[in-house]
Design a protein around this nucleic acid. Sequence first.
DNA 1: TGCTGTTGTGTATTTATTACACTAACTAAA
DNA 2: TTTAGTTAGTGTAATAAATACACAACAGCA
Lengths: 244, 244
Amino acid sequence: MHPYINNLSVDCVIFGFDNNTLNVLLTKRQLDDPETGEVIFTDYTVQGHHVLKGERINDAALRVLKDKTGLDNIYLEQFYTFGDTNRLHKERDQLWLKGKFPMMSDHVISVGYCSLVNSAKVQPDLQHQDTSWFPVDNLPLLGFDHETMIMMALEFLRDKIRKEPIGFELLPEKFTLTLLQNLYETVLGIKLDRRNFRKKVAQMKYIISLDEKQKGVAHKPAQVFIFSKDVYERTKKEKLDFSI
Amino acid sequence: MHPYINNLSVDCVIFGFDNNTLNVLLTKRQLDDPETGEVIFTDYTVQGHHVLKGERINDAALRVLKDKTGLDNIYLEQFYTFGDTNRLHKERDQLWLKGKFPMMSDHVISVGYCSLVNSAKVQPDLQHQDTSWFPVDNLPLLGFDHETMIMMALEFLRDKIRKEPIGFELLPEKFTLTLLQNLYETVLGIKLDRRNFRKKVAQMKYIISLDEKQKGVAHKPAQVFIFSKDVYERTKKEKLDFSI
DNA sequence: TGCTGTTGTGTATTTATTACACTAACTAAA
DNA sequence: TTTAGTTAGTGTAATAAATACACAACAGCA
């Protein structure tokens, strides 16, 4: 009797932003030969775990996040549920599961979550585990169906960031408009005109300038802004689009 | 040994459109006392079923659709996975499960699918089962967490229909612009200006007018249009929004 | 032949989007 | 202390999109 459900897991694709790179948090997976100690393979996976008996799946995702980053209260949203029968059937994955988790079902359904964090806050916890950031456009070899998973999470993020102000979850609380623009350019892979971007931001009442400037930079210091979710919720509008 | 997985199901929220109503397809659920034959309760549920062993969840959803509507090849998309521990714990639901499905887990995870159909095509199959259409704004008593499920599917539909041309899935292949406008007004619960609506549609190369008019109507007959997914895919554009 | 009900159309006004280049403010190095 | 280097911050004109609004054309039916 195990405390987890053997055919159900959650996987969190955790994104972080780093000035001009969008990163994913990945954990190294290494299988050694039990006799010789030789390394059979090494690859990476996103942060996942089986759901515990009596645990809500959303709580399972929060638990995984807390375990791997030390953070709670961060942006987290389901984006897709992976239920193909062969999603764990690559040779590496079968070796891994047979070797380490023989009690698991070989048809595990995984609920995928997309999470956005301010990566500065995550750093401290990275030491213990073989966990680190990889740029989304330069991923290492990945286990299971996690490459697909990351690509779908990224598409989810790109769709969502165009339509809702979730980008701020990736930034420090206080940010400059240049950083914000960088973020949009990086995530969406496009270039934006600075003046037009700032004109647009100026219309958004929920991006609020502080009486405070950047310090210690070798150029004109930028104005500092914060994002107010509260103001956003109270001023947002809907649009018709369906899409030309 | 049962052929299905006892803690995993799919539920399809099937929407149909009927000139000026948005409907959901629901099946009656009735529990009778096995001794007296007395009706213990009656309510409705969306179309769902457990996933079979060795079956992909998307295939399970297709199977449910085929079984309940006789249709394949229809619009179907995951919108959310329901994994709360108490989602089957209402009194009615427990009586039902204990009475009819004692072998099921009492923590069933359900993957919710949103499906859009041309309801004219579904009619024939409705006879056999206690299955019928209900307006989304006048739902009967619902079992399990299916009221939440329908509301989330509806929200998904409303979001999606603003941004992607999926409304056509709810219409006959050939439709008039007035019907199309009705659809948007009904689904979104707003009023649109006819001239502006048509101006917008005129820009969409993928809504194509036929050399054909409405027949047998006691007024000026309307032009008939079709939707081309192919043209859509090849002409669509992305926009930045993040949302004022 | 006229009544009813729905279709189809144009223009003017306001609002949003795009394209584009120079000065201001700070640090670091000479 | 001066200068060079670097990023911040700003406005306008042109084009495109959104909105508001009213009347004639066409078919069936009485």
